[in-house]
Design a protein around this nucleic acid. Structure first.
Lengths: 158, 158
DNA sequence: CCCAGGTGATTGAGGGTTCAACGACACTGT
DNA sequence: ACAGTGTCGTTGAACCCTCAATCACCTGGG
């Protein structure tokens, strides 16, 4: 290391913006979303993942993977959601180690109730400030970046 | 609320990518950066802000604003960095309430030592996966978004 | 001068997140 | 059948971060 060339003129602001967004966006979202809906953004992500799964059932580990959260975090979040009656936990029949998380009716209701608020936040924090052209041009780039970030963890660096 | 129209075909993936990036990027950065350099990404940001300030001096509150961190967090981070000898804290002469944080020689050295690692992380986690064209097209969009996010906090919603 | 209100920064308490260690279970080869 | 090894998920301890209360100080009006 130490042989890297500095960021060039286009890269530097790109990097700064990215850093700024990663710190400011979650805050902007959470600050309004939690009081409005009673769900943390993390909770919401878990409920969404379950709602999109077949039968509304997902292995704990699968849940961790699709939401990008750590196993221990998922464990506590699911516990919390279980306590609140929004999901249920069931031992997996064909693998005694594993557990499945199931979205309950109350969970689905809660999710549907929270959706408009989530949407509103997405609009006021992001889409209101960008043109459709912006979104069309930047979208694929962000998608590629997101995919790359998801893929990196396994290989422990180069 | 509740009158929002759903995200359209371009917006939905844009939104998902954005969420993914905001969760995965800080992790990807921190995980390698802290062990390599002994600096948390937050610490690094503070040192960078100081290094770019005239005389390497900045008010605590100014530091909070430029780094986007809360006042209480800055207070603790600066305390920690002071304990480690990387910055110094001085009462502001013309305002007894205020304090200035000053980058020490050791702090500058540390920052310079960490810079290549930071650069390397920026490359492997982001720029290696994007073309120069990507960066040129998406850069301004991200810049606009970052600016909008910085601007929103004051007005408490509509 | 003195008081009221505002601002800069710190701090205690509480919640959230992670790391590392662990218990329970599944697989593999002998 | 049975070690040995690996995987799923949970949990205790530690850390990070934020909110709200607070202290110290400044400023403006009587």
């Amino acid at each position: 290391m130490g042989e890297q060339s500095a960021l060039d003129l286009d890269e530097a602001p790109f990097w700064r913006s990215l850093i700024r967004i990663t710190t400011a966006l979650p805050r902007a979202l959470e600050d309004h979303f939690l009081p409005e809906t009673g769900l943390a953004i993390t909770d919401y992500g878990v409920l969404v993942a379950l709602s999109e799964a077949p039968e509304h059932v997902l292995r704990i580990s699968a849940l961790a993977a699709t939401t990008g959260l750590s196993l221990s975090r998922i464990s506590r979040v699911v516990d919390d959601l279980t306590r609140r009656g929004l999901v249920e936990k069931r031992k997996c029949p064909e693998d005694g180690r594993a557990s499945n998380a199931v979205l309950t009716g109350a969970g689905l209701t809660k999710l549907e109730a929270a959706y408009p608020g989530h949407l509103a936040r997405a609009r006021t924090s992001v889409f209101d400030h960008l043109s459709t052209e912006d979104i069309r041009t930047a979208g694929p780039v962000l998608a590629r970046l997101a995919a790359a970030l998801d893929a990196t963890p396994p290989t422990d660096d180069c």
